[in-house]
Design a protein around this nucleic acid. Structure first.
Lengths: 122, 122
DNA sequence: GCTAGGTGCATCGGTAAGCGATGTATAGTT
DNA sequence: AACTATACATCGCTTACCGATGCACCTAGC
């Protein structure tokens, strides 16, 4: 059996395809932690992530994710039609959300420690 | 429109379903960093992760992942039929793999900083 | 010699989810 | 009038997790 080396895939392309996979799980943590601090709405969350991480947050990812969070009772929602801008759907963290955020956070810490241990003596 | 709160999903269940998603991206980084240090084989990698992270690494996840890495030229493989044990498929990091690992690592660092900034003033 | 458990590899298929493309609507700018 | 930014949302193609399952070998205990 012969395994063909795939040279069409540059390292940059591989990285580009890996990024969303990596983003996947931690994105939810990021959003929950963000909402722990202040209520926010979709577009602002995306802007926030773009600025603080210089990472894209496609709308096709964000809005379904927020709906799932709402479905699972992690956030409460409220439409804000006041003001001059477009109507905003504000998200507020719930108790369940806070609880889950803290569990995710400790999981993050565990991975963080393991990663650091690996890069230490390379 | 009414959004039904899904109480069947306990926070523990939500966390359990989230974990593999979170594991998803960083797992590849972990394996590449591990292979940067020494060549290894599937079963050993799984054991290693289980010990250092107390995290499960299902075989249905691991072996397809390793095949993808091989396909993309991130690792070189070599069967070891010597010794008393079962034949082992050893994985060695390639230059492409090393390059990608370093890119992933800096991405990890960026997320790490952002996360830390969020949990600081909660 | 038989059986159970550990080692070591692998695939299949049901399910979940990313996200590019696309759509709608309003406000402000050129 | 045209374009950009704000703000929401869905569709469907594709990727990938992982529980279940299977094969093969080795060692230990009865």
């Amino acid at each position: 059996m012969q395994m063909v080396m795939n040279d069409e895939n540059s390292v940059e392309q591989l990285f580009a395809r890996w990024q969303p996979q990596a983003r996947k799980g931690w994105l939810e943590t990021f959003i929950l932690l963000l909402l722990c601090q202040k209520r926010s709405y979709g577009y602002e969350i995306a802007t926030n992530l773009r600025q603080s991480l210089d990472a894209e947050l496609p709308e096709g990812t964000l809005y379904p994710l927020l709906r799932r969070m709402q479905r699972d009772g992690l956030v409460d929602t409220e439409w804000d039609t006041e003001g001059s801008s477009n109507p905003r759907k504000y998200y507020t963290i719930s108790n369940r959300g806070r609880e889950l955020a803290s569990m995710m956070q400790s999981e993050w810490t565990r991975w963080s420690q393991t990663m650091r241990a690996l890069e230490k003596d390379q």
